[in-house]
Design a protein around this nucleic acid. Sequence first.
DNA 1: GTGAAAGCGCTAACAC
DNA 2: GTGTTAGCGCTTTCAC
Lengths: 372, 372
Amino acid sequence: MPATIRDVARASGVHISTVSRTFSAPHLVNPETRVRVLACAEELGYRPNRAARALITGRTHNIGLIIADIANPFFPPLIKAAEGQARHRDYHVFVADTNEDPAAEEELVHALAKQVDGVLLCSPRMSNALIEQVSREVPVVVINRQVTGLPCVMMDVGQGARAAIEHLLGLGHRQLALLGGPRGSWTNQQMRRAAGAAARSGGAELTVLGPNPPTETGGSALATQVRDSGVSAVLAYNDLMAIGLIEGLDHLGIRVPQDVSVVGVDDIALSRLTRPKLTTVATPTAAAGRTAVDMLLQHDSELRPRGGGRAAAVGDRRTTAQVMLQTELVIRDSTGPVPGRSRPGSVPDGPGPHRLADPGSPTVTTGGVVAS
Amino acid sequence: MPATIRDVARASGVHISTVSRTFSAPHLVNPETRVRVLACAEELGYRPNRAARALITGRTHNIGLIIADIANPFFPPLIKAAEGQARHRDYHVFVADTNEDPAAEEELVHALAKQVDGVLLCSPRMSNALIEQVSREVPVVVINRQVTGLPCVMMDVGQGARAAIEHLLGLGHRQLALLGGPRGSWTNQQMRRAAGAAARSGGAELTVLGPNPPTETGGSALATQVRDSGVSAVLAYNDLMAIGLIEGLDHLGIRVPQDVSVVGVDDIALSRLTRPKLTTVATPTAAAGRTAVDMLLQHDSELRPRGGGRAAAVGDRRTTAQVMLQTELVIRDSTGPVPGRSRPGSVPDGPGPHRLADPGSPTVTTGGVVAS
DNA sequence: GTGAAAGCGCTAACAC
DNA sequence: GTGTTAGCGCTTTCAC
């Protein structure tokens, strides 16, 4: 029963177009009329129907944000940052969670497509082909994955993984393991490649375990495999898995970092709260959220095509920038010297050129800023 | 440039109304025509514009879910459950985060109003008056708060708080503290009232600290106050605050549960991962999400009013049920006997009638199911 | 079974 | 400065 523009027009004795103008172009309407219209609108509790407005203007002032798993603490900071940035530009963000399900992902993006001006695809599990198809229906910015031809915001987990491996090498570890995350994950690929290369060039062996779900359970389930593999240090796909693994190792009577060192990725808030506090590769999630919104809204001012005209194809987009954000290794308490190689507290002989930050500085910046 | 219904009509040589029927009432169209239309639609990548459809049918098949703080791990299970339930009924859920800001809350509900068939208001911080006003614009179900005249889904934190206090009394504690959460929180009121009553009837003293933000920081900030107050047990507004408090006490050299017992509320996943594992009042968040969706979609079949007709006012709604979901005390490792009263492991003399579950059962069910 | 016409709530030329 | 007209993409009577 909400009042429509017609109700307000009737009540204030003007034509509906005047009411329309009162809201969308107030300066074009006589101050006196405006006051009267506004009063009637207020009285009737009238609110312009944004959907109807969007039908004709082509702009909803909404952004869709599609997330693989809202329960993963990695995402909330990104969501918050995106919302903040969107609000600055007078946009609202609608979040949808896909439960790591590619089918749900596709469905949701279609459901959102016409109700938003663009969609942020965060850690998508869809195929590249599907992402490209979808991007023909609605402007898209991809986060946490590289898709050629589309604007992407990535975090340099490759560099992060390398820094983590070098940190472990510096502590004397030579038998390493990598806990793999979800199979479709771009991040997973990057980490695997970089960690493998870093281990090789340090003369170490890297065992890949998994893939497993990127959760605590996924991590703890790999505890026995870690034990049996005989490695002394582990790099996990993310903090959740790292924490799960530590938990699982604990059950097996294996202590971290005395017996095994563990490194996570993401630096979620939780990683500071567990015992031991987690050594991890911090990813700039907030920056990613902000950047993605900016990229999506870059052409804010350009009107969407109307009527018979055809829209600009993806290829026509002025900029399909791909941004790589840097990561940072945060050294806490879950990593230590390889057991039986040196006394606690002493500095183990490093692996040659791989030198770490001096003990006074708790963090090491890795990675670089890239754009194109 | 997405194809419209007209493009499909042109391509398949039928009138647009036939295309429309092909999608919204396929049985009314000749199978052959249907196949042809569908083929053309597929070819052109046509998708019905849900916003335009909603304009005339009055139903978007979307639900809005407004959340106070998406970073609070309390919410994701609720969101997931709501999404699952909605999907069963062929609805999509759009989540919006308000950052605990009442103004943002109001703005978002208006932004969503016309793009969804109803809104779930989760732990709203708005005034009751505002909630009622909003409910005149769009169907609303309130979660975690009681608003007379509106459908509500609540969790019986009052019972939970009472069970927690009785548990502590049973362990011999007589000097208790309650960490208060956000001022506008309904949950906060319920807890305070119930905890106060339970303490009183057990002959114990209850100090109320706070209110503070419902976060780890909010909890750890109260550590010195807890120490100075001389209490031996604390009930926190939620798990996050409890965990923060434990962390803060740790810094002060106060051990949990040896020196001070701590109980949280919510039973977030994290509460099983910290050391000590947290004793907490488990809230049925998933059930709340499911129930709220069901209540919102109860009148699924009833069409929204159209044309000149007036909609049913809120008062006309057949059922404005208010559901109270029961909570459960989960006893883990953050609570123990009052220091200096009994040997560890021995059963302290209870506070009379307050008897707890036998040691073999880790959980105690509290609260009751209520409806109206 | 299909087409024609009206209209959901709104904006955007174009007159006046 | 304001009213008129057309139409966004779609559904839904109502004829035929």
